[in-house]
C-alpha cells in the first residue's frame, strides 16, 4: 500500500517543503527586519513607510514557496477535489526535486534578505533621502529567490 502511494507521498513532500522552508525563512527575515523597523520608528515614526517596505521584502519568498506548492499540488491532483493522479516513484521524485530549489533558496535568501534589510535600516535612519538606494540592496537578494521560483515552476510544469 505504502509503496503504491510512494510516488504521491514524494511529490507531496516536495510541495510541503517548498511552502514550509520558504515560509520559515520569510518569517525569520520579516521578524528580524521588523525588530529593526520598530527600533527606527521608536525615535523616527515619520520613517514608518520606508522601513515597512524594507521589512516586507523578505516576505516574498514565503509567497513564492506557496505558489510552487499550489502548482505542484494542482498538477498531482490534490487541489480542486478531482481524481488524484497515480504517480510512479520516479514521477514522485521528479516533483520532489522540482520543489527543492524554491524550498532551499527560498529559506536562505529570505534570511539573508532580512539581514540586508536590517543593515539598510541604518541608511534610512542616517540618510532618509537615500531610502531608495537602501531598498536596492535587499532587493538584489530577491533575484535568486526569483530564479529559484522560475526553475521550480518550469520543472513542475515539465513533468
Amino acid at each position: 500500500m505504502f509503496v503504491e502511494n510512494l510516488g504521491i507521498v514524494l511529490a507531496l513532500t516536495g510541495a510541503v517543503l517548498s511552502a514550509l522552508l520558504a515560509g520559515i525563512g520569510s518569517a525569520i527575515g520579516v521578524s528580524r527586519a521588523g525588530k529593526a523597523a520598530a527600533g527606527v520608528c521608536t525615535d523616527q515614526p515619520e520613517q514608518f513607510a520606508k522601513v515597512l517596505i524594507l521589512q516586507l521584502l523578505p516576505g516574498t519568498q514565503g509567497i513564492y514557496g506557496l505558489l510552487v506548492a499550489f502548482i505542484a499540488l494542482s498538477r498531482i491532483g490534490l487541489l480542486g477535489g478531482g481524481e488524484i493522479a497515480a504517480l510512479t516513484i520516479s514521477e514522485g521524485i521528479l516533483y520532489l526535486l522540482a520543489c527543492l530549489p524554491m524550498a532551499f533558496v527560498g529559506y536562505f535568501s529570505a534570511v539573508a534578505q532580512g539581514n540586508t534589510s536590517v543593515a539598510s535600516m541604518a541608511i534610512v535612519v542616517k540618510q532618509p533621502t537615500q531610502a531608495g538606494k537602501a531598498m536596492i540592496f535587499p532587493a538584489m537578494v530577491e533575484t535568486y529567490a526569483i530564479l529559484a521560483l522560475l526553475i521550480s515552476i518550469l520543472v513542475v510544469n515539465a513533468i
Partner: peptide, 16 residues
Amino acid sequence: MDYIFAVARIRYKEMS
C-alpha cells in the same frame, strides 16, 4: 539573543 531593535535605536542616537 540579538540586539537588532537596540542597534536600530543606537543608529539614531549616533547622529547626536
